[in-house]
Design a protein around this nucleic acid. Structure first.
Lengths: 130, 130
DNA sequence: ACGGACGTTGACGTTAACGTAAAGTAAGCC
DNA sequence: GGCTTACTTTACGTTAACGTCAACGTCCGT
């Protein structure tokens, strides 16, 4: 049980280079165990990497992704910390909701353009076949 | 009629520096008219700038944003171009839909964490006031 | 005619996110 | 032992997206 992965294995799975994975470690986004000198990744590390990739697709900087991921891990015991924490989460949520709106708008416009284009296309082809 | 804007004006409105706006011009994202040496921006340029900012919020590179914007402007008269064009649009749509999914997931998780946190918070405060 | 606001074009600096090359280590196979 | 394969650290290179001067033009109010 408790499967582990090598660095190249993960690199293949997520389609990044090993350099990239090590770079993320350097930035504190991952901290795999070591067996001698080599890195050993647990399923938990793998999840983190998945989260990193999702963050990247959302256009977050690595520093922000780190904060995001920490949100899942940290257990803020003090009330003050808890408040601060909640605030961070709400900031993130707000940002994401803005993004959601942006995407919706853009998708609508793309949709419009696509319809227009395919209309033009079928128009041209009618002409051609007439 | 037909209002125009100065570079600093737009910079203020979109909260970027004039350097940034000129940089976008350099990259072919904007091409304002000139009055002598100075740049004159039309409402149309302003719309483009708005699109650029939205693209940035969505995590696109400037080069991609340029392609995106061009989608609104270009009128592909040839059928081959039209097809190519449609394909591009569909690629973009697909990417955006992935992003949409990513955001939805992330938002759900944030939501969960937030609920948990605010539960913990009110719990702590009950204890405190008892 | 002068200062100040606003604008211009270079040109070099900076940060993030890796790429790439060099040189060495460790394990397994034949 | 020698080869291969996978991995390591160290270090310099690169690209995108600007920031930051420097040095100069132009218009406007006083």
């Amino acid at each position: 049980m408790s499967e582990t992965y090598g660095i190249a294995e993960l690199a293949r799975e997520f389609d990044v280079t090993t350099r990239t994975i090590r770079f993320y470690e350097d930035k504190g986004l991952l901290s795999p165990a070591r067996k001698g000198q080599r890195r050993i990744y647990t399923p938990r590390d793998r999840v983190r990497l998945r989260l990193i990739m999702r963050g990247k697709r959302l256009g977050f900087a690595l520093s922000e992704i780190r904060e995001l991921i920490d949100l899942y891990d940290v257990d803020p015991s003090e009330v003050t910390q808890l408040r601060h924490f909640l605030e961070k989460i709400r900031e993130r949520k707000a940002a994401l909701e803005v993004q959601q709106g942006d995407i919706a708008e853009t998708l609508e416009e793309m949709q419009r353009i696509e319809s227009q284009c395919s209309a033009m296309l079928s128009e041209k082809q009618k002409t051609k076949s007439s």
